[in-house]
Amino acid sequence: MGRVSGRACIVTGAAQGIGRAIGEALLDEGADVCFADINAEKVAEVAGANADRARAGGGRVMSAAVNVTDREAVRAMIAKTVDAFGKLDVKFNNAGVNKPMNFLDVTEENWKFIMEVNGLGCLVGMQEAARQMIAQGHGGKIVNTASIASRQGFDNVAPYCASKWAVVSLTQSGARDLAKHNITVTGFAPGVVATEMWDQVDQDLMEIGAADRPGQAMEEFSADILKGRVATPADITGTTTFLAAKESDYMTGQVVMIDGGMTLV
């Protein structure tokens, strides 16, 4: 039996990167997993590619299209998952965006775009998952994706930093409110992770003059990592599976740093 056998899980932002890795690791440990993303076609391909993995782990896999800032879409995603799996036990609010801009150039549009997806999207995901779990009557787990940027500000990604500070605050607030329903709320904070999102950030930083060549930004951001290298998604999933499993049942309101020792707080 896997560590999360029989648990019905949703992972948003699961078409690639950390989200996809979280979902695949859950499948390896026996969970039923809904891979959800705004890119319906890509996330359906990811779910299809994991059919054999799901069978091998003893779980089931499906996909759902969702805009995490749209409450009705989030409700529909949860309903679709419950129809397929019979319940919802674990909800990963992982979907996130970034668009670097130099601090003095940050626009209202840039701020709203990032804060809506990373902040409002997290809040709506927590609320709707909690409502489903309360209706079921047997508790559950909500896990939010923060960042090293939730612990300190960086000059070229100020709205992103603010949005991830919001994720930490929402995690704490949700933990306090939902404890009476036996729902735990935790989070994890990755550092520099080699994913498609970082590839785009690298390109964006060059476009705004914050880097001169490909890879420079990652090198500079990761120079102080005590482990001596950037993370891969697989470095993250040991913690995320733990946060979905019964072994973390006594944890709530906490955000676990997974940054190789880049930020010591």
Rank of each mutant, 00 (worst) to 15 (best):
A56W: 11
V193R: 01
R75T: 02
D212K: 13
Q203H: 12
D28S: 15
V43Q: 00
M101K: 14
E24W: 05
D89I: 03
A40F: 02
K164P: 00
A8S: 02
S163N: 00
E109A: 15
N110A: 15
T252P: 06
N39D: 15
V66T: 11
S63K: 04
A231M: 01
M133W: 04
M101D: 11
A217P: 01
R151T: 04
G48P: 03
G187S: 10
I78D: 02
V124H: 05
A211E: 06
I38H: 03
V61D: 01
V97N: 10
E72R: 14
A79R: 12
Q254I: 13
V106W: 09
M77E: 08
A14Q: 04
L226G: 05
A158M: 14
V43E: 03
P159T: 05
Q136H: 09
I208K: 13
S163Q: 03
A162E: 03
N50L: 09
A54R: 03
V256S: 06
L26Q: 04
K141F: 03
V11W: 02
A40T: 03
G121D: 06
A210G: 07
T184R: 09
S147M: 03
S173M: 13
D52N: 12
L26K: 02
G140C: 04
R55L: 10
D212Y: 01
R60M: 12
N144S: 09
K87T: 09
E45R: 14
S169A: 14
V66M: 10
A210C: 07
P100S: 14
D89R: 07
E41S: 13
P190F: 07
T184M: 10
K80E: 13
G153R: 09
T239V: 11
K87C: 09
G30E: 07
V143N: 07
A47H: 03
V97L: 15
A135S: 10
N156W: 04
V97M: 13
R60N: 12
I142Q: 05
N39W: 05
V192G: 00
Q216V: 02
T232F: 04
